[in-house]
Design a protein around this nucleic acid. Structure first.
Lengths: 211, 211
DNA sequence: GTCTATAAGAGGATAGAC
DNA sequence: GTCTATCCTCTTATAGAC
């Protein structure tokens, strides 16, 4: 019956080190993207040898998967806080999720994975922990989406998957970085502008925060 | 006065070969993305030796830039056909542009460049031909955007750059490939759905083509 | 300008001592 | 499990003959 409960001190040290590794990976993925991130950089950033990294994670793909799991866990924690507010409507919750996603991106903490890398996609598709977290997030958002459509807060003619994908896509919206690079708007304004275009469209007569 | 007019037969052959190269690059960029595309593949696809490629284009970055210029030229040609229709409103033209962009993507002909590759960005920023074409497209779209806002066809509260960027972003919309992978909708339905979410938002009460 | 052959280097992954 | 040192593959780019 070894390592009962939370495990020995030694185990906790190891888990803390893994947490530091994943945090570094997350930051580097947000900064440079998956392809430009090298395992050497990760090791240097954490302050350990590359060979030691490979004792914790067996490949670069697994490092990326760990970062994604970390992100999804943070998302799940945020979804839980939203669900704890019984007065909020489905639409308000979905907008809050989109806002959170954009803020993570603005903070430089959104890991960027290439959509076309097939080996990476295969590794993620084979990672049960990742798939599990992804399904938890998708299911919760799916509930709110159908609720929002029933209440006519969301366009009832749109397939729910489309709405789900559109919300997920806010995590890699290139418009955010372009507006940010322009330097004309504050972070809060950028978030409001993108939320407006997402939920009300380019034609919509939404009032933003001004009017 | 050598090479007058369109040049000799020899020059035309060379230009045709360069066209074939750029077409291959465009297809490979659309299929695998910039990082996964190798110069060896391009050479094999065109059917010439890699060293010959480097006689036409001095680097992989220049290959990508040539593909982008080709794309922008196609876009400019399409914009010209739109401008030849005097009855069309600004909004109709912008929707037609967005539709064209999505159709290029669906046809597997949209080159995919990583937003974060700094050396590639530098090469593009130093390419005057590319910048010239990009500015021509941006200026024309900018005209229509401001016209659409004056006519209240577009939300007047949105900064014009935001609208421009949002239209550009349709060229790499991940929602399209997700819907396509789902297999539940025809290409035309996918285009209509994405146009609706883009211009009318997730909340909008647009009728799509059904109602 | 086209080819074959190769340089030059980056980067993922591992061997083996401790 | 951590380290140093190394392997090995892939990829960009070029040399030099024709």
């Amino acid at each position: 019956m070894r390592n009962m409960a939370k495990g020995s001190f030694k185990v906790q040290v190891l888990q803390a080190r893994e947490g530091a590794i994943v945090a570094s990976v997350n930051r580097l993925l947000a900064e440079k993207g998956y392809d430009a991130m090298t395992v050497d950089e990760v090791a240097a950033d954490v302050g350990i040898a590359k060979a030691s990294l490979y004792k914790h994670f067996t490949s670069k793909e697994e490092l990326a998967a760990a970062a994604m799991i970390r992100l999804l866990d943070h998302a799940l924690a945020f979804l839980a806080t939203l669900e704890a507010q019984p007065k909020a409507t489905a639409l308000e919750r979905l907008k809050a999720v989109a806002r959170w996603t954009l803020q993570v991106q603005l903070a430089g903490e959104m890991p960027a994975l290439p959509a076309q890398n097939s080996t990476l996609r295969a590794a993620l598709a084979a990672n049960k922990t990742y798939l599990d977290r992804l399904m938890l997030v998708s299911d919760k958002l799916g509930e709110w989406i159908t609720a929002g459509q029933k209440a006519s807060q969301l366009n009832r003619k749109l397939p729910p998957e489309l709405i789900l994908y559109t919300l997920f896509a806010r995590a890699c919206d290139p418009v955010l970085s372009l507006l940010k690079a322009g330097g004309k708007y504050s972070d809060e304004q950028i978030v409001d502008l993108l939320l407006t275009t997402c939920f009300d469209g380019l034609c919509g007569h939404a009032k933003l925060r001004l009017a």
